[in-house]
């Protein structure tokens, strides 16, 4: 019995990418709450770095999504 059939090849990579996205999201949630609290306390200078870092985190999430999408279509074409 094959422990890793071909249809499961990409699942580990996809699960790893999902775990990374979740970690990035946790950081982004913290960043949003910290920026909001800072803004409400009158420190407007935190808004620009907050937005830049949030954009970088979103770009990383988008790249990981594209990675997942690519593996998904590659593997499922093989399944067909």
């Amino acid at each position: 019995m094959n422990p890793n059939p071909p249809e499961n090849r990409g699942l580990t990579a996809i699960d790893g990418a999902m775990a990374l996205i979740v970690i990035l999201l946790i950081v982004q949630i913290w960043l949003l709450s910290a920026t909001l609290e800072s803004y409400l306390a009158g420190h407007r200078e935190a808004a620009i770095p907050g937005a830049i870092i949030s954009a970088i985190l979103f770009a990383a999430c988008l790249a990981l999504y594209r990675f997942v999408d690519r593996i998904d279509s590659d593997v499922r074409q093989d399944i067909k």
């Binding site: 999201l25 949003l32 907050g50 937005a51 954009a55 985190l57 999408d69």
Partner: peptide
């Protein structure tokens, strides 16, 4: 994963709104 990415986009929008 798409849902998580859209959530990330929502938080980016929040940061841009603060900006």
């Amino acid at each position: 994963t798409k849902f998580l990415t859209l959530t990330s986009f929502g938080m980016l929008v929040g940061n841009l709104w603060i900006l």
